[in-house]
Nucleic acid binder design. Sequence first.
DNA 1: TATTGTTATACTCTATAACTATA
DNA 2: TATAGTTATAGAGTATAACAATA
Lengths: 137, 137
Amino acid sequence: MNLPAALCALHHEVAVLYSTIARRFDLTLQQAELLVQLDTESKSFGELARLLGCDKSNMTGMADRLARRGLLERRTDPTDRRITKPALTDAGTELADRIRKDFGAAIAQRCANLSSTDQDQLTRLADSMAGALAAER
Amino acid sequence: MNLPAALCALHHEVAVLYSTIARRFDLTLQQAELLVQLDTESKSFGELARLLGCDKSNMTGMADRLARRGLLERRTDPTDRRITKPALTDAGTELADRIRKDFGAAIAQRCANLSSTDQDQLTRLADSMAGALAAER
DNA sequence: TATTGTTATACTCTATAACTATA
DNA sequence: TATAGTTATAGAGTATAACAATA
C-alpha cells in the first residue's frame, strides 16, 4: 500500500460515512459540511466558497435551502455592505452539534481496533497532511 | 485537534485535490473515481455502486457518459446475462493511469515536509482506518 | 419469485457568464 | 474600476420508484 492510495481510500470512506450521517437529518453531504463550517466562526459567502472548494455562485442556492428550513439566516456586514455572512440559528447550531457528535461517535466506534497511540498519531498526521494540502490551493 | 475533525479535514482536502486533477481531463470527481476503481479488476455495476456508495441507478448515466467518450464499454457476463460489467478501453486505462500518477505526484510534493517515517506511519494508519470504515457498511 | 441493470422523475450540486449593488 | 453576492443556464450527481430481462 502506498500513501496516495491510502489517502484516497480514507477520503472516500469518510465521505460515505459523513453522507450517511447527513441523511439522518435530511441533509446532503455538502449541506452538512457547510453547517459544520459555519458553527465555529463568522465567514462571508466568498470565504466559505473557497473553504468548500466550490464556486461562489453555488453558495446562494445552498444558503437558500438551509435558510428555508430555518437553519441559518443572512446578515449584511455593517462595515462593507457588499458582504453577506450567514449565521446559524439556534436550530442550526443544534443540528451542527448533533452532526459533529454523531460523526465523532461513529469514528470512535470504528477506530476501536487502533491503539491509543495509533489514534494520536493518526490525528497528528492527518491534521498535518490536511494542513499541507490546504496550504497549496 | 481530535481524530474526527482531523479525518474530516483530510477527507475534504483530498477531495478538492482529486477534483482539481479530474478537471484537467474534463472529468468530474466521481467519474475519475469510477475510472480508477475500474482499472484494477472486473466488477459489476452493482458492486461498483456499493463501492462508490451510491445507488445502482446512478451507474447507468455515469457509464453512458464515459462510454460516449470511448473510455469504457459494457460487457455482459456470459455466466449470468443479467450482470453487466464495464471494462476500460485502452484510452480509459491510459487515462486512469495518468490520474493515479498525477495524484500520486501531487501528494508526494505536498507531504515533503513529513519525515519518511511519518509518511510510512500515515500510510499504515490511513489504510487501517479506511479498512475499518469500509468493513462497517 | 428474486435479482440486475435500466428508465423516469425530482431535487441538488457544480461551473460559467452576466448582472446588481456597493466600495 | 473592482469586488461580493445574485441570477440564469446547462450539465452532472443523487435517491426513489417502477420496469424489463434474466435467473
